[in-house]
């Protein structure tokens, strides 16, 4: 807009005074308004990103709930009513490649925009980052990670591994330290534990207070074959490729043959297949003497191959 008015002035359509007014008095007003408008704009774009994820209906429902709750809490605050501090520690259960980390990242950004979290960054840790090597080392390590994560999200992947080592393992110490700090910093830290379904259940049983400290449990269901196909299409589209109908059929066939429970419904598996098909396509095209633009675009059935081994 500001460039428009400069052009208008250049061609002698408006006076300098009007130009100056438009440029500078509007800017001052904008600054005041900007703070509020920008936020809602960002929340919108993050929500669009979340909604673009395939499946995950329960996650989307949960996010909607939290947004509504936060907004109503703000209203209540304006009316001088009691407001609950929101405890949002979560447990994500699901097989690999079902979107746990992706969702955690989006939630972090969303909460920052909504003002639930101060920074909204996400610290991803695994067992090795919080379990020490000798007595007394563990609590220190946990403290360091917590300190880093304050104002954001502490995301512990494969959390069940903390409880796997048996009686003398320092993993237990780590769990105790985490439980303590998640109570201390419940206002400005969100802890998310993630792991496979069965193992997480075992893990939660190791410390009786653990389950009740996490008010939100989210199950990440396996993707159905159709959802996986949709994901494959989106992945290809993002990189400016196109799956032909035959390729889609072949992919469908491949995915249904993957029957072991960890890998069926795994988006990461699809990504690997798709990325491999790009390489296969490149190899196929290199043999051709003439390559059209459509050739560059299309992924054919022969490019799709499930086997990761070379």
């Amino acid at each position: 807009m500001s460039n428009n008015i400069l052009d208008l002035y250049k061609f002698g359509k408006v006076s300098l005074n009007e130009t100056f007014n438009q440029l500078f008095s509007s800017k001052a007003k904008e600054k005041i308004l900007k703070g509020q408008e920008d936020n809602s704009e960002n929340i919108k774009s993050i929500l669009i990103e979340l909604n673009d994820l395939i499946g995950l209906a329960n996650v989307k429902e949960l996010v909607k709930e939290i947004i509504a709750f936060v907004e109503i809490q703000k209203r209540r605050k304006n009316e001088n009513m009691l407001t609950e501090p929101i405890v949002l520690h979560m447990i994500f259960r699901g097989n690999p490649g079902t979107g746990k980390t992706t969702v955690a990242r989006i939630i972090g950004r969303l909460f920052r925009e909504m003002g639930v979290l101060e920074k909204g960054h996400i610290i991803e840790v695994e067992r090795a980052d919080i379990v020490g090597e000798y007595i007394g080392h563990t609590a220190l390590k946990v403290k360091q990670q917590i300190k880093k994560a304050i104002g954001g999200i502490l995301f512990i992947d494969e959390a069940y591994s903390l409880a796997r080592g048996g009686e003398k393992d320092f993993g237990k110490e780590a769990i105790d330290a985490l439980v303590k700090s998640m109570e201390d910093y419940k206002d400005n830290l969100i802890m998310i534990l993630a792991g496979y379904e069965y193992e997480m259940d075992v893990f939660l049983r190791t410390n009786p207070g653990l389950k009740s400290r996490f008010p939100i449990h989210v199950d990440f269901k396996d993707y159905t074959t159709n959802e996986l196909i949709e994901i494959a299409n989106i992945m290809a589209k993002q990189r400016q490729y196109k799956l032909t109908n035959n390729a889609i059929m072949k992919l469908k066939q491949l995915l249904t043959t993957y029957n072991d429970s960890y890998n069926s419904g795994n988006a990461r598996l699809v990504r690997n297949i798709i990325e491999k098909s790009f390489r296969k396509q490149a190899l196929r095209l290199k043999k051709q003497s003439y390559i059209s633009k459509k050739d560059l675009l299309d992924i054919k059935a022969e490019d799709i191959e499930g086997n990761d081994n070379y």
Binding site: Y9, K10, F11, G12, V14, S15, L16, N17
Partner: peptide
Amino acid sequence: IDGIHPDI
């Protein structure tokens, strides 16, 4: 200068 100066 106020207004529109004639020289582009």
